[in-house]
């Protein structure tokens, strides 16, 4: 190995990435070349310093600031339980609002000069079936959400 080859290989020599044969040839050259010994000493100092960089510590309140940010995020984040409660609540609200909406539509459509709107007639039985279906759907969503919440947030 000549000086040029040694200088090209010196980093791999220091980081032990040089193949064994090349390492032996490197060593053989080193014995008789002061310039390359200098190259090796310098690169060893660089690599050793880079390998032993100290771990620095952030300010004392760093962890509490990080965890404080998480809590604030959580306060503003919608909980899955709220979304579960919303399903039956929305269904109930829609059902309760149906009567006033129908009456309002009838009032509007009966005024002269306005576009006539017709509200389809719904029997008591049909309304009951629709209400039941909405409540069952809400309960199914709630049950699915509860399983999801348990698995995601509450298990062990």
């Amino acid at each position: 190995m000549n000086c040029d080859e040694v200088r090209r290989s010196v980093q791999d020599y220091v980081t032990r990435e040089l193949a064994p044969d090349d390492r032996r040839r490197f060593d053989a050259h080193l014995v008789e070349c002061a310039e390359c010994q200098r190259e090796l000493a310098l690169m060893t100092a660089v690599v050793s310093t880079l390998d032993h960089q100290p771990v620095l510590e952030p300010s004392a309140d760093f962890s509490s600031r990080v965890l404080g940010s998480l809590s604030r995020q959580r306060e503003f984040a919608p909980s899955p339980w709220w979304s579960l409660a919303l399903a039956p609540l929305l269904a109930g609200a829609a059902w309760l609002a149906r009567g006033p909406v129908e009456r309002a539509l009838e009032t509007i459509s009966s005024r002269p000069g306005l576009i006539h709107l017709s509200v389809p007639a719904v029997s008591l039985q049909q309304a009951g079936i629709a209400a039941g279906a909405i409540v069952v759907l809400g309960l199914l969503v709630a049950a699915g959400g509860a399983v999801f919440c348990w698995q995601t947030y509450l298990r062990d």
Partner: peptide
């Protein structure tokens, strides 16, 4: 985990 990694990440 924050305690464990804060030094490495900050450095």
């Amino acid at each position: 985990l924050v305690e464990r990694y804060k030094g490495m990440l900050y450095s």
